[in-house]
Amino acid sequence: MVTVEGVFGDRIGSVIRGWMNKIDGINRKYAVPRITMSPGVKIALMLLRLYLVFLVLLLGYKFYTLMQ
């Protein structure tokens, strides 16, 4: 089994492992959103997702035109 310690060595690997555990802890701590997911909140978050997808597509298109 591949481990971070195996890839990066014990010293750097343990530092990376520490950070991974920290991030994992944050993800667990905030796994469940505290705000009540009312229809209004759901719609707002959905629109935000669509907006971000639109921006990503736009940036992708810009990158594509630059590469041409």
Partner: peptide, 24 residues
């Protein structure tokens, strides 16, 4: 300017949603 555009709407929408939450 481009990167700020990706964050500003999210920060503002979260602000309004939080300010409308009675529990918070």
């Amino acid at each position: 300017q481009v990167v700020a555009v990706t964050l500003l709407p999210a920060a503002l929408v979260f602000l309004i949603l939080l300010l409308n939450n009675e529990e918070i």
